[in-house]
């Protein structure tokens, strides 16, 4: 594997037909790079949940994966409304999703806690009216993160 590999995708807000395409391409990239499946599965959950949040909550954004020999970093960046209360948003069951989104099977307030469970490190920087940057890290070797 090269020392650094980066892929970036634009994710459109409210485009439920295309939602997940970026995550799937990142998944295929990881498989192509030979990332072991337990790691790529965790990465899939993180990227897809983050992508769905871009589609549902922020009017779209940028999804990026950065792969080095040590770790995978997933970044979701948007210029949406921001998250007013991050502690609340991290709680299982909290959601501001619309009825339309719920009818499609999303908006149960499971995404952020699920991202946290599958990351070794998770950082969310959010400013109301400016946007949100979510950065999740998965280490390829045990003992480098704080998971568990």
């Amino acid at each position: 594997m090269d020392s650094r590999y980066e892929v970036e995708f634009k994710v459109r807000g409210d485009d439920f037909l295309a939602a997940g395409e970026a995550s799937n391409q990142i998944k295929e990239t990881l498989i192509m790079l030979g990332v072991p499946s337990p790691i790529s599965r965790r990465a899939s959950v993180i990227t897809y949940e983050a992508e769905m949040n871009l589609v549902i909550h922020s009017g779209g954004g940028i999804l990026r994966a950065i792969i080095t020999p040590e770790k995978l970093t997933i970044e979701a960046k948007d210029q949406g409304p921001g998250i007013p209360d991050l502690d609340l948003a991290m709680r299982e069951g909290f959601s501001t999703a619309s009825d339309k989104v719920r009818e499609m099977g999303f908006g149960a307030g499971m995404g952020l806690p699920n991202i946290k469970r599958n990351s070794d490190c998770l950082q969310i920087d959010s400013l109301i009216g400016k946007g949100t940057i979510l950065t999740a890290t998965v280490f390829f070797h045990q003992g480098e993160g704080n998971r568990g």
Binding site: G20, S44, G105
Partner: peptide, 17 residues
Amino acid sequence: LTGLTNVQIVRTAQMMD
């Protein structure tokens, strides 16, 4: 197994292997 029918069902399945 699901009672929902939209494209995200297949997408979710794909992402979750």
